[in-house]
């Protein structure tokens, strides 16, 4: 079965539940490198998403747009706006369709990464959520089985966290911490891992 409204809704519900459980972990990870509210941002966004699950549109593009809007309402957080930007890229790519083959996942991640890079002025290698997303995009290229997609994605995110843990954060508020960011996981990458883990 391809991606459709029903399994998108199920997936969003699982992500929302997971965010409640991860909130404290994300807040404290963010507290070491940022302003300590990433868990709050994710929970606020997830709760707004939960509210719209019952009347999610059949058109996947419109459904992704509704989810995107939920994250724009968590205003004040650039991570929320960036996630919303990525979701809107997915919305544009799926507009007018009620089903999306899983094989498109990697390509849509690529579109989301490009849109988020343009909006946030970050590059790959800056140790941000983009590096985790890019690792998943590369690893899942050509995959069309949803189970294989999820297992491969989890492995890719975990490997990206390990790869970047020893590096410095090169953009945003975390950049100010310089060498002190070595050894710490990027909070945005952790939030993305939580999303992937929730689906697996």
């Amino acid at each position: 079965m391809p991606l459709n409204k029903a399994n998108l809704s199920q997936g969003l519900k699982r992500i929302a539940t997971r965010m409640e459980a991860e909130a404290d972990t994300l807040n404290s990870a963010d507290g070491q490198l940022g302003d300590g509210d990433l868990g709050i941002t994710m929970v606020r966004g997830a709760r707004l998403v939960t509210e719209i699950l019952d009347d999610l549109p059949d058109d996947l593009g419109m459904a992704f747009m509704k989810v995107s809007q939920a994250f724009t309402k968590t205003s004040g957080s650039s991570y929320g706006t960036l996630l919303a930007t990525g979701l809107l890229a997915a919305a544009k790519a799926t507009k007018g369709r009620t089903e999306m083959p899983w094989a498109e996942t990697s390509g849509i991640l690529g579109l989301a990464i490009a849109a988020m890079m343009a909006r946030g002025k970050a590059s790959l290698g800056d140790k941000t959520v983009l590096d985790a997303m890019e690792a998943v995009r590369r690893a899942t290229d050509g995959l069309e089985d949803p189970v294989a997609l999820l297992i491969t994605s989890q492995e890719a995110v975990t490997a990206a966290l390990v790869e970047f843990r020893g590096q410095t954060n090169k953009i945003g508020r975390a950049r100010m911490f310089g060498d002190k960011s070595i050894g710490l996981d990027d909070p945005g990458m952790l939030a993305f891992k939580a999303i992937v883990d929730a689906l697996a």
């Binding site: 593009g61 747009m65 706006t81 919303a84 930007t85």
Partner: peptide, 13 residues
């Protein structure tokens, strides 16, 4: 700029 670009994307939808 970030917010207005995002709003523009939404209206494009």
């Amino acid at each position: 700029v970030m917010n207005f670009d995002m709003a523009g994307d939404m209206l494009e939808m």
